[in-house]
Write a protein that binds this DNA or RNA. Structure first.
Lengths: 341, 341
DNA sequence: TTGAAAGCGCTAACAC
DNA sequence: GTGTTAGCGCTTTCAA
């Protein structure tokens, strides 16, 4: 039974004021380092603050003043992709004078429009700016400066960070082709995301360049989400004429595809080769470890944060940052014939 | 140049009220689903809300009402350990009716007392409760219900989630012993944390049980932080009588130790075996992949969140949850002689 | 140098 | 059913 523990109300500015025998206005000045406070008063108030452990309420503080020195990272869910970005952002925030607030809804993805909702709830009050992770709604009109990582398709004025999805997809497809695969299944990403469009385009281009037809029935949608990928993966792998390789648009789908393969009694890579995209840490943990296209996720998070700070400060700079991708060869693909010419 | 973009002020309740021709009080009732609003008014207001894309400001809302339906996870920094917990918490939050807000300071760890400061800033206003990740200050007196993951040493009334650090450390040490190592270096964790104490205790106990002396000069402090671990690791590995194996108290330190070894021209595990603790995803990515003691990090995050919700709801239950640890054998340790009896 | 007072966007009595 | 009013904890003129 622990009811009743932890209920001391937080100490507020009025408490400090009373204790120090001054008004809240004076305490506020001390807290915010404003001029016009006698040294003696300042010391006394500071002492009381220390002793009482006073800390301004973010909610109240930000309601009144425009700057909070808190930056938001808004995500649909804390999964491997967004948390990698978070690590990068966390690395980059040191020395900027900002604190980091990551916000996620409670609805496990199935929640369109979260970016607008979260932004509305936090902007104008709690945060001075926000990084939106894979937003589908790209309103350029929010209360605060915003930077998007891997956003929705279509031109938008939004400052953006992404990686070279197209080149990465071409590389992945060529890799499979070079291993002798030509019957390649494709698990597309989340509809609407620019990255999903580019990865599919890269796949098709590489196939075309190699003179290979894309069997339309081998192209399915996985939406970047494991639960959405298993069905299509199962369909693909259950066919009598199943593909010899599957290119999943992101690692989470690829990992889910490996699970499905195992479930179906198929060995990876002996019976089917699988390649992913992202290189989240989890991709190295699967059996077999996943061959994938690496995005510099930490760096993307860090760049997003730096870009946001620059936008807030009104620095003139390039507001579209594209980072390179790279093939990471692990053990989920195997050669099945002679490489293509 | 992007100055001037994104500056439309957010739409507030007064805007909705004006547009709908009602008072803000009525809008508030609609937003919060209170009784006493005519169906016709309700529809009209709802329509305006929809059209204008109104969303209540978290800051203002929480200033006034006690419940915000937001739970906080307070961390010193977003690194592999805390983000794994975050993933687990994110999984567990679905269906609880809460949203998740993760907060981290901007000061990269070197910031004692962050837990109290963050809590003060957020409690009483923004969040209904908080999960504290490895807090060193264990005041049981905050404005809101609090749950700690892997907290500071010493008994405290705080509801707590941890894993069996002692057994894990014993298992790691025995494993090394069984591989024939007896000159084992130990990189201790962050001073004050219960987990650090227990891991060292487990190490010493296992050594004693095997009848091995612990060379005091082989026990150093790594503080769970890579930058703090490299120095001690270098000292240990530079000695002419260097240990044949190192047990690092957490994966981040173990990974840093591998780097140091490589820097020194030592091969892992040929020249020195290294074992870690935590099993963060990154531990599988090193060269060689790290053998380590696994904590069920996702589950710990999920359990912490569930415990917090129960505490808030006043559910009577066990408020100390301890989860099992497990040895994960990868490739950073090798046998160097006959196993101990 | 200090404090009184207004108000940030919202909720909750209470009056109409 | 609906609006008026009084704050929540803080910052910021502005007067004293």
């Amino acid at each position: 039974m622990i009811r009743g523990v932890n209920l001391a109300p937080r100490v507020k500015m009025a408490d400090v004021a009373r204790e120090a025998g001054v008004s809240v206005a004076t305490v506020s000045k001390v807290v915010n380092g404003r001029y016009g406070v006698a040294q003696e008063t300042l010391d006394r108030v500071q002492g009381v603050i220390e002793r009482l452990g006073y800390e301004a309420s973010l909610g109240a503080q930000s309601l009144r003043s425009r700057r909070t020195h808190v930056l938001g990272i808004l995500v649909a869910e804390f999964e491997p992709f967004s948390t990698e970005l978070l690590k990068g952002a966390s690395e980059a925030i040191a020395g900027t004078g900002y604190e980091l607030l990551a916000y996620s809804g409670g609805s496990r993805g199935a929640d369109v429009g979260w970016e607008r909702r979260h932004l509305s709830r936090l902007s104008g009050t709690l945060i001075d700016g926000a990084v939106l992770v894979t937003p589908t709604v790209v309103d350029t009109n929010h209360g605060v400066p915003v930077v998007a990582v891997d956003p929705h398709t279509g031109p938008s004025g939004l400052p953006t960070i992404d990686s070279d999805n197209y080149a990465g997809a071409v590389a992945a497809t060529r890799y499979l082709l070079d291993l002798g695969h030509s019957r390649i299944g494709f698990l597309a990403g989340r509809g609407g995301l620019e990255s999903a469009r580019l990865r599919e385009a890269g796949f098709r281009q590489a196939m075309a360049d190699a003179g290979r037809e894309v069997d339309p029935s081998l192209v399915r949608v996985g939406s970047y989400v494991p639960s959405a990928a298993t069905g299509p993966a199962r369909d693909l792998l259950s066919r009598p004429d199943r593909p010899t390789a599957i290119f999943a648009s992101n690692d989470l789908s690829a990992l889910a595809t490996i699970d499905v393969a195992h479930e179906l009694g198929l060995r990876v890579p002996e019976d089917v080769s699988i390649i992913g995209f992202d290189n989240v840490p989890e991709s190295a943990l699967s059996t077999p470890p996943l061959t994938t296209i690496s995005q510099p996720l930490h760096r993307m998070g860090a760049e997003a944060l730096r870009l946001l700070v620059d936008v807030i400060d009104g620095v003139e700079r390039d507001v579209h940052v594209r980072l390179p991708t790279e093939l990471v060869e692990r053990a989920s693909c195997r050669r099945i014939g002679a490489p293509v010419a």
